[in-house]
Amino acid sequence: MAKINLNMITQRSIEEGAAMEQGKTNPNYFIACTVCEMNPEDMKKAGIWKNTNVKVTSECGSVIVKAIEPTQYCPPGLAHIRQGVWANQVVPPRTQSTGTPQYSGFPVTIEPAPSERLKTALELVQGAVGLWNGGQ
């Protein structure tokens, strides 16, 4: 299956901010943050249809998000996941000894994963620390 190597940035967006202030378990937060914006050219290269799920893998993990066309123009080679729970599954914690992780400018591999499921914020975070009980 096709893959593409891109440079990932994770930054704030108003959709994310507005939804976050409704609560991180609110469905709007899920909708706002489970997206990866990438240039249509790059999507084509990797055989990704827009609005389908992709697997984003960095040096420290991977996450399933939905590939969408950029809401703000994103040049080829660059990808953007809105800051938040999903982005932070792949953000490298290395800080260049400054205290601040590599939130922007880290290499990722993106591949189609149309049949993979998007996980909720709670599932990802609780799952990472062994507390996820299946959402009961």
Partner: peptide
């Protein structure tokens, strides 16, 4: 939500307390 998940995993090895108005 806002730390890289690996950092959260390290912190969770020890007592973890949250003070916040919301969930």
């Amino acid at each position: 939500a806002h730390f890289p998940i690996q950092a959260v995993q390290h912190l969770k090895k020890h007592p973890f307390i949250t003070i916040d108005p919301n969930f």
